[in-house]
Every structure is written in C-alpha cells, then in structure tokens.
Simulated scan of single mutants.
Amino acid sequence: MVVDRIFSGIQPTGTPHLGNYLGAIQNWVNLQEECSSVLYSIMDMHSLTMPKEPAVLRQNILDTTAAILACGIDPKKCFLFRQSLVSEHAELAWILGCLTNVPRLLRLPQWKMKRASQNNEGTVGLLTYPVLQAADILLYKSTHVPVGEDQVLHLELAQDIAQHFNKKYGEFFPVPKAILSTTKKIKSLRDPTVKMSKSDPQKLATVNIVDSPDEIVLKFRKAVTDFTSEVTYDPAGRPGVSNLVSIHAAVTGLSIKEVLHQSAGLDTAHYKMVVAESVIQKFAPIRSEIKKLQEDTSHLIKVLEDGAEKAKELAAPIYQEIRRLVGFQ
C-alpha cells in the first residue's frame, strides 16, 4: 500500500476510554512510525455539533491532547493541531458544501441517530459536519484515512465530493482511501451488544484510561458475561466473554487463539481479573504521564499552536489553488 499522506482526527471529549485507545489512538501511534506525512487533529469545531459549555470544551481540548501525547503520539513525527486554528478547514467546507446535495446528508445514519438528542430537530452543523470532515481530509490532499466501521459512510462522502470536485474543476484531489482498524470493536462492559461509549449512562460500562486500578477491577468484576464458566470466543453466542477476550488480546498484543490457550482452565470470574490486571498494566505508565502533562498547560497549548502553524503552511498553497479553481481569484 502506497501511502502519501494520512489524516485523522479526534473530538475533544476529555481523556479517552479503552475503546478509543484500542480502536484509534494505538493505530495512530503505529501509523506515525510508518508514514512520513501524518496529520492528527483535535476536532474542536466538530465538537460544537453537540452542546458544550465553553469552559468544559477548553478543558477537554487540553485533556485530550495530554492523553494522546501520553499514549505515544509524537509531534516530531506528525502534525498535531487544533482544527479551529487552521481557518482553511471552515472555508473549504463552505465550498464543498456547495457541491453536496442535502438528501445525501439526510441519509447518513449519524444524522438520524444524533438529532434524536436535539429534540429530533437537529442543527445545520449536525447535518453538515460530514462535509466539514471531507474538508478536513481534502484540505491536505490526504491519500489515506484511518477509520472505524461507523465512519466508512462519511469517508465515502468525502470520496464522492473529491470526485465531484475533480469532474467540475479538473483533477485536483486524490480520492482518499480507508485504513480500517484491525482491532475488534470494544463493547460496553454492561451491554456487550453495543460499543463502549463515554456517554453511556451506566458508569460501570466504560473503562477510562485514567481510571484507578480499583475502578478498573470493579468494572471488570461487574462486566456482564453469561452462565457458562469456560472462557471461549463466540461473539454471536457469547458476546460478553468474547468482548473480554478481545480486550485481553488487544492490550497484550496476543492473538485471540493465544489468549484462549493461556486462559484454558480459568472460569469467567477469575478471567475477568486477569483481563483487569492486563488493562491496569497497560495504562499505568500512560495514566502517570497524563497527570504530568495536565500540570503543564502552557506546553499543551504550544504543541497545538506549533502543529497548527505547520498544518497551515501545508494547507495554504493547496487552498489558494482551490480558490483559483473555483473562481475566487
């Protein structure tokens, strides 16, 4: 696979949870080692699609930055920046929005799902944020985007917009390809039929990477399994136990087969504690580094500002050419 430039982003929701780490951030760390041009953005503009108090958003931006740095993202190996500091994102989104029809946006499942939280009305921002996502990607002529399965339709929209622009104005944007995460989707510890989520009202459902060892042990002890004591992997028939196996494999780097071999003879009650201990060991150094970074706000701000400056240098000539193509100059 020839990869020229990778772009990905994360919404600033504070410190990530286990699913965020295994599904996205761990992959980001690997990709920055493999590709010479990588951009990772804190998507603060996207976060406004759901109501946020300004003080909470400001703190979430810093906490998210501290967390991904602690997880191994290196600003020397990638551009790490705040989306809103590069104004070309919003400007390009307007141009691309003028090439995108409303029925296409109305069909996207995220719109149908998230507007329910806004009295089934939804805002213009919530409807059009997939166009801003397309602008985020295309502004840098990105060739590849790491995505989870739930974002594939949004990437397909970005691909269609790129092709539409190229057809109208001449070949300009590469059509970005997906880099799908190989990690099994991490499920809620209280309802293994749905994915782990920070917004889950059940506090025991989601493991946060800054949870204390005692909190992690409690959440895994209370994890929903079934009445069979043997540890097996059967996502359809035994989703709870299979979710634990997936987590165990992901945090240790072992295969599902290796995890099952190591766990032979354990009942699920004992196995829960094995998985909890693996998670505790994985996150202990990260948790310590997050606390250290959170105490140095000025460093976090500087990292994001320096990254934005570099991202803007990359974006500016591309956007100037877009302005010329559409007739602005």
Rank of each mutant, 00 (worst) to 15 (best):
G327Y: 08
V38P: 00
Y233I: 05
V102L: 15
I322H: 00
A311F: 06
Q26V: 00
S199C: 11
Y233W: 13
S188D: 02
P130S: 09
V207L: 02
D296G: 05
V251Y: 04
L132Y: 13
I301P: 00
R287N: 07
L22R: 01
V152P: 06
S199M: 11
A311Q: 05
T128D: 06
F227D: 10
A276E: 03
D160T: 13
L189W: 01
K272E: 04
D191C: 05
L48M: 15
S288K: 07
K114C: 08
I73M: 10
G237V: 09
T182E: 05
L62T: 07
R323V: 02
Y233S: 03
R221T: 10
T65A: 13
L138Q: 03
Y21Q: 00
P130L: 10
F220Q: 09
N60L: 06
A178Q: 01
T100P: 15
K312L: 15
P54K: 08
L254F: 05
G14K: 14
D4S: 04
H89L: 12
T100V: 13
P317Y: 07
I256G: 00
L314G: 04
L106Q: 13
F81K: 07
V275E: 00
T268N: 11
A276R: 04
G265W: 14
C71R: 04
K168H: 13
K312I: 02
I10E: 05
I280E: 03
R82G: 07
L22Y: 00
V152L: 15
K282L: 01
Q262R: 11
E258C: 01
Q59D: 09
